[in-house]
Computed example of a mutant assay.
Amino acid sequence: MKENNEVQEAIETIVMAMVIYVLSILMCGFTVMYLWNNILPVIFGVRTITLAQAIAIDLLISFIVTTQTKDRNLNLKDVFVKVLSTCLNALLVGWIVIQFI
């Protein structure tokens, strides 16, 4: 019985991690798309981008500038909160800035 519970918990953790991963990709991609489409066309006259293009830009920038964290003891919830708060903070500050453009 104990092994079944451990397997069940492992499966739940993996599924939750995949859901969180997809949600964070979508949220950060939406943030990039929203900020791009509301700032860059107004200032530089560039074209707007789609969500898929925004996710690709976010992935590229994250790959280039991400540094490794020294804290290896973060659990899944902490990582999700960190990623989500970063995206939401950027979205909020960007929204405030857009109001003055």
Rank of each mutant, 00 (worst) to 15 (best):
K82C: 10
N5E: 11
Q68E: 14
I57S: 08
Q68C: 07
E9T: 04
T86W: 04
G29H: 01
M16H: 09
Q68A: 07
E9N: 13
R72Y: 08
F80R: 09
K82Y: 07
W36C: 00
T31F: 02
T50N: 12
L60V: 09
I49K: 08
Y21H: 05
I14A: 02
T48L: 03
L76N: 11
I57H: 10
K70V: 05
C28E: 04
G94I: 14
K2R: 11
T86R: 09
M33H: 03
I43W: 06
F63G: 11
L91W: 14
C28R: 10
V97I: 08
Q68W: 06
L91P: 00
L84H: 04
M18E: 14
I20N: 07
I64F: 04
Q53L: 11
P41K: 03
V19W: 10
L74N: 15
F80N: 11
P41N: 02
N75W: 04
L84C: 13
D71T: 11
F100R: 04
E3Q: 14
I64G: 00
T13S: 08
A52Q: 11
V46F: 02
D78G: 06
V93E: 15
L74T: 15
N38C: 05
Q68D: 11
V81K: 13
L40M: 05
S62M: 09
D78P: 14
K82E: 15
N75K: 12
L91M: 12
M33S: 06
L40C: 06
A56E: 13
V97T: 09
M27S: 12
R47A: 10
F80V: 12
S85R: 11
L92S: 15
F63A: 12
M16T: 13
A10S: 05
G45D: 01
K2N: 09
R47M: 02
V32H: 01
Q99A: 12
T13M: 07
